[in-house]
Design a protein around this nucleic acid. Sequence first.
RNA 1: GGGCGUGUAGCUCAGCGGGAGAGCACUCGCUUCACACGCGAGGGGUCACUGGUUCAAUCCCAGUCAUGCCCACCA
Length: 961
Amino acid sequence: MTMDKNFAPADIEQRIANTWDEAKAFDAGAGARDGADSFSIVIPPPNVTGSLHMGHALNNTLQDILVRRKRMQGHDVLWQPGTDHAGIATQMVVERDLALRQIQRRDLTREEFLNHVWSWKNESGGTITNQLKRLGASCDWSRERFTMDEGLSKAVLKVFVQLHREGLVYKDKRLVNWDPQFETAISDLEVENIEVDGHMWHFKYPLAGGETYEYVEKDEDGNVTLRETRDYISIATTRPETMLGDGAVAVHPSDERYAPILGKLCEIPVGPKEHRRLIPIIIDEYPDPDFGSGAVKITGAHDFNDYAVARRNHIPLYRLMDVKGAMRADGEPYALEAEKAKAILDAGGEPNKNDVDMINLVPDEYRGMDRFEARKKVIADIDAEGLMIEVEDKRIMQPFGDRSKVVIEPMLTDQWYVDAKTLAAPALASVKDGSTKFVPKNWEKTYFEWMENIEPWCVSRQLWWGHQIPAWYGPDDHIFVAEDEEVALDMAVQHYLSHEGPWKAWVEEKMNDFKPGEILTRDPDVLDTWFSSALWPFSTLGWPDETPELKRYYQTDVLVTGFDIIFFWVARMMMMGLHFMEDEHGEPVEPFHTIYIHALVRDEHGQKMSKSKGNVLDPLILIDEFGADAVRFTLAAMAAQGRDIKLSTQRIGGYRNFATKLWNAVRFAQLNGAGHLVDFHPEAVKEPVNQWVLTEASRAVAEINEALEGYRFNDAAAAAYKFTWNLFCDWYLELLKPTLNGEDGPAKDEARATMAYVIDTILALLHPFMPFITEELWSETEGAHGRENVLALSPWPTLAYENETAAADLNWVIELISQTRSVRSEMNIPPSAKLSAVLVGASDATKARLKGQSNVLQRVGRFEAITLAVTAPEGSIQQVVGEATLCLQLGDVIDLAAERARLAKEIDRLDGEIARIDKKLGNEKFTARAPEEVVAGEREKRAGYEVEKSQVQEALGRLPS
RNA sequence: GGGCGUGUAGCUCAGCGGGAGAGCACUCGCUUCACACGCGAGGGGUCACUGGUUCAAUCCCAGUCAUGCCCACCA
């Protein structure tokens, strides 16, 4: 069974995946030593609607590298996989799907719709899981979880109920970011502020009753620059459609221009003249006197800043729009389902007595009009009336829904909130005291900044797909929060029977014939998807049940994720984990001790990859083209801390070549009968070349270990690459060839055995990075000696071998051959020409080396012979190797002028080095203040250069003139 | 406005207080019995700029310029 010349990833990847499957290699605890420490990672659950993108590929490659190494080290490993139900995204996908079949969600019952979602999930939800498998992710797929699973849903209910009982979850009416596309509230984090071209309109708000005042403007020195009589106040706005909801006009207390009209009323100049509302001119610190006219209209129900001003000054809040962002239409279903009361609350939170006014808030001609249409009409109407002062073009920041991409409308609604401030305190402390560490550390600052300024978290969503909020409303809208309806009903009955009032008798009457729906109505809203994601590190392990997995794998070890979800997910896992999980002493336990934040994979311009920009590189296409191993290795090699990855396919091609190189190295070993010794002990190796490669292999093992312990994936990848290609392939195998082609005997046996051993080491070291090809090559060389059948479950290399003498010997050999090659190339000597050489001035040690390695030197260096001599022969090209000089005998071919130039250049170089060191040593401050070993080192280097220089000078002198 | 980062070879990027590195690209040579997705040899960089600290700065500090991201924001 001879191996093919080239490595064809597509042919083996599926087969290797099956091998792992059959071996149950990724099951929790697979291959663990007795009593081994646990090592666990929870996957950042991709959206069930998702398909693998480069970010996933990077994220999961890094996790897989950590996990595979730990597994090989014999730890009890769990990599917990699963997917996220992704409320909005999934509902969107399914609605779109249904639309193709002419079905609208609103035509279905909630239950019918959810059935559609579940069947969609069952058919299409596995996509990303399969794609992760193609990447080689070694998750315990038997433990796959979904945030809407029964167990995880139970966790969600428990958490919500407990937080509510503790007062950390509550219902509130306040301004919220409203997405008119999806008709739901979203959290602050789901809003993207984007700068767009906009306008700022300046309007006149006429004073009530045609009153006038003297308007005076002054410059900085107090000189009057403008004085005129006005019957209006000038207002600037970027959102004229909200004018109908104005509650006041505010000016800064220090603004003298408006002092004459403080407390007076002005008119909102929109709608039929006879019905226009009058609003007061008030003072507040908020307006900036130097911006615009210095006067701000206050629209408390449609602007976050105005909301704060309105609350402070007890200005009524007028909600103008319905759930679709259209102007409210009388008699139309404009209210939220959850919003039973038609009343707009006033500043104090009490129902407004003037409900009627509210209904008439929007004049007939605007009712039902989309907000942007209404804007046009408001502008046109005001302009027609002659009240428009000017229109400014202006770049403005506008909020957009991160999924819907429509303009977000601040809206006054009832929503559920989590008291994030309280939960954030311990989460903040854990990072501050180092219990949980960010890698790289600088992300801590981002985390602190956000956590210290955290706002209440709006967790209710007006969707159908998600965890329905476990809250029930009584007939008087009293709220009962419980894990199920039965408990809620008990609570309700108790509540009503113990409170005197109109409902007591009613409940008493119902007691005999309970029909739950008649007393209680469940809150129709669902929870923010991130609410369940926040529980992921323990809900996936079985919490709230006390499972063995929970005991063994919580706290998880490291969370590997991108910085874009530090707030969305990491922070919230910290909050929930610390609140709900505790150790045997009752102390809170963080969900993980390390948070490794990796880069974002960007396109060539450093732009985030996104479908809308059309700059997406599809990892699956890359896997098809280059193989999963090449894609993985590229991502690992580029995952330097603190810098984004700009991915190029060329680079992936380079690492595909690396895979082929490895393939051929093993092929070479196989053709040369690697692995004949049954028992291999590095300490028993006798040949210097083998001692040397084992020394170098040990160094590579140490370097890779150190890099991976520090999450320096790029350093680990580079070390593995360098050792495999530049040392093992380029030198070791080449140096071995004379022996392998020579006669059978102990030397050949040892070469074969060492070669096999080092290849095993390389395969193991590379396995976390390139699992498919290494597994395949492992099985190709199966039976070499006693070892596991599956590389994924084989021991991680622990080689620690050091032989300095052998290392020095072989480095001398390499130096000699390299120099000779360089000279050959420079002097245009054909590579095929075999040279005779004479070594002059060799020490005893060098003589011994020459003797020991002469066979190798001749073969690899292409020498006819290397002999020892006291003086250099006439007409030879000379090169300094250590203390000796190697003279290449070329006979007539030698170009004396070229050789003289070559040696002169060498002397120049050495002179340069010596001059540089002399400058240093000549500096008294250097010799006095620099550490002794540094000074000694410089002196040593200088001496070395001097010796070399004199050798080269001698060589030059020996040339015939 | 606040925070974080980046400017090193043509390109993509490592490195980091004491002799400038890799991959790709480029040049030259090679049907060397594993590999042309290869082998060997090369060329190429005032390490953005200015100042400071230090015996010594690509590396530390300050400032400038350029550039990227995150958060907040004047109606």
